[in-house]
Design a protein around this nucleic acid. Sequence first.
DNA 1: GATTCAAAGCGTAACAGTTTCATTTTGAAG
DNA 2: CTTCAAAATGAAACTGTTACGCTTTGAATC
Lengths: 348, 348
Amino acid sequence: MSSVRQIAGELGISVATVSRAMNQHAGVSEETRKRVLMAADKYQYRPSMGRKPTNVIGLVYPEEPVHSDIGDFEAALLSGILRGVYEKNHDLTFISAARDKHVDETYTQFFHRKGVRAIIMRSLGDTSLVEQIAAEEFPILLVADRSDDPRVNFIHSTSGDTSRKAVQHLVELGHKRIGLAMHNVVDTDHEDRKAGYMNALTEAGIAVDADLIVEAEANTSGGESMLTSLLQLDNPPTAVYFTNPMSTIGALHKCLKLGLNVPRDLSIVGFDDSVTRLQSFPRYTAVCQDAVSLGEEAARWITTAAQNESQSVFREVRPTTFEIQESTAYPSMTPARIDADGNLVHTV
Amino acid sequence: MSSVRQIAGELGISVATVSRAMNQHAGVSEETRKRVLMAADKYQYRPSMGRKPTNVIGLVYPEEPVHSDIGDFEAALLSGILRGVYEKNHDLTFISAARDKHVDETYTQFFHRKGVRAIIMRSLGDTSLVEQIAAEEFPILLVADRSDDPRVNFIHSTSGDTSRKAVQHLVELGHKRIGLAMHNVVDTDHEDRKAGYMNALTEAGIAVDADLIVEAEANTSGGESMLTSLLQLDNPPTAVYFTNPMSTIGALHKCLKLGLNVPRDLSIVGFDDSVTRLQSFPRYTAVCQDAVSLGEEAARWITTAAQNESQSVFREVRPTTFEIQESTAYPSMTPARIDADGNLVHTV
DNA sequence: GATTCAAAGCGTAACAGTTTCATTTTGAAG
DNA sequence: CTTCAAAATGAAACTGTTACGCTTTGAATC
């Protein structure tokens, strides 16, 4: 195995020049650089030590190995993060703290050992890890969640206000019994959506009915089951707000199977992270957040934070938008419900 | 800024011990390790040089920055890769060859500089880059594509045979005019699917009609437009095979909009990378590949290849499966088509 | 109880690459 | 021809790692 010294000796130049040439540093003539690189190739030179790759951002998930498949939101977020990171000439690497961190190591030591300069972190509800890392003053950005800890940087979307607007829209159409179908894992975003729902009802003078609030997993079968249980109520809702894209899709699918016409028999407001609302039948009215640009913005901030040491706390809250599509209309005169046999009936 | 020597001096031990302690190497007592790590934390020690993080697999995409959003297939593949890589105690990092590689550098030099030991590569049709890297004998695995170059390792799914089976299924149901709706970007997988379609028709003694083969982008609007142009033919198909999940979804969506009943008025066979076929209305009959396990297997192989130097060529071809769901049936007696005004009509 | 022996723990010194700073070279302006 | 600044380079100092050898420890064996 060859070393910089051998190559330097071979070419009759100094090790410093070889090192500079290998690392694309300035101060080496183009001709010397080529000679060095060719010699390195010829002697199969492999740096055995060398500076750690710089400009690397770590992406940390709370659980390892990534146990569930990467969903719609995660994929869109990752797209954005990658784009932002590339734009700023950084690389992105997945880090598994759960697997690789030694107990006695501080997080800062761990990340330095892994060769990352800063961290983008996803937290599924539990922000204690982020807070711990932020306390060490290692550059970290929590994405798509928030924390009360004053040291934690985060960027997320608020869907509380837009959720209120969405439910108001239903109220204005004349709906009085409006269901809420939520994710059964509590995080701040879903809390906000629930709060928005409550506020809209309270403002409209409509009492909140606990029966109309259901929870399930954030996937299509969760959506189906939530729709089913809502429609099995004696006094079913005429409109439902699904706070998650996949459950919205599942619910719409279930409606098609039941032969229930959306929006004539039931109005549905959904949630969308990307463009799912436009790819369903019917296209659904939704509270929309742009996960791609959330990721992009996160990457842009963390890359600059990785370079300028002391940065002030960053807390960006991005608005969500409310977009009316084809899944909401005036309430049905004869609200649909599912009877004991699982059949669709219309109440009078 | 402190160094290993300062810490060693402070604790009255040697630099070797400090170095070993910092890198979780054996040969250091637990007590000494703790003292070192605490001192390192106290003096804010940051290794300025140090060994590059080992056990890192690079993920390379042909185009940079990842210009399109990460789609269904890419997300599923990435899930699998991550899981496989984690399982083998490696890390995964995104590498941008287009952006960072210096022209005079060999790929091997470039990857060493980036600190990656092996590469998983996606190629969208053009395999010349993989071949070039494989020629340097750098460990690389092409995933979800293949190459004729005898040095290239690859893992992919064959959908040719299963596509033939899918079209045979339609033939057996009685269909004679069967459309093919393809991705307009040529890669080996889509070539195979087309070949399977052709074979099935030829075997059944049905002449291939070029009018029935259409191409568009692999997304929902591509699916819609392909369906539309097929149904606008004077002699429209009674069944169509869509070789891509998103275009299948787009076509099904378009059918719902047109009021065209699938499978009564038109049979549709689609393609699925994960579980999309079960989340549509109706659930669609599909040629299915498991992108997650493809990624897992890819990660497992490349991690072992990254360690044992000379490995024999690896070429795994995974079967796809054909799954009958609700979108295929006997051909309609009155095939549907779209007239000049864009309305649905039934031919007699 | 003495002996043996292997493993664990640690230090010295050699080694790998990088970077600072001084020196030389180059090239263009005066 | 001189001057001077920028570019290119080298010597030496510096960073972190590792091979190898020494010491200690503790348990098995005689």
